[in-house]
Amino acid sequence: MCLGVPGEIVAIDSAATASAVVEISGVRRRVNLTCVLTDNIRPESLLGQWVLVHTGFAMSLIDAAEAQHTLTLLAELEAFSVDQEAAP
């Protein structure tokens, strides 16, 4: 029910109604951008941005750097285990 999927904003449908088009696994669908717009974030500036989509709404901007950081932490975790084992 709280399912959310990542999608890339590929077109702005109507800036006035905060409507855009996202691509999710090759499928295009319309999303509402209200929750990710601020005074500093205009619809046009979101082209190419990845967002978390839930029931037709973009609910969050996905932070590419943080995603990479999480993957790095995971890799380090495994390295940590190996080090621990190697330690006398």
């Binding site: 209200t34 929750c35 601020t38 978390l52 609910m59 932070d63 943080e66 950081h69 999480t70």
Partner: peptide, 18 residues
Amino acid sequence: NQYIRVVSRDGNRQALQA
């Protein structure tokens, strides 16, 4: 917070306002 790529400490202000 493990889900840092999506979740921020204060949540989504616009969503909470609505």
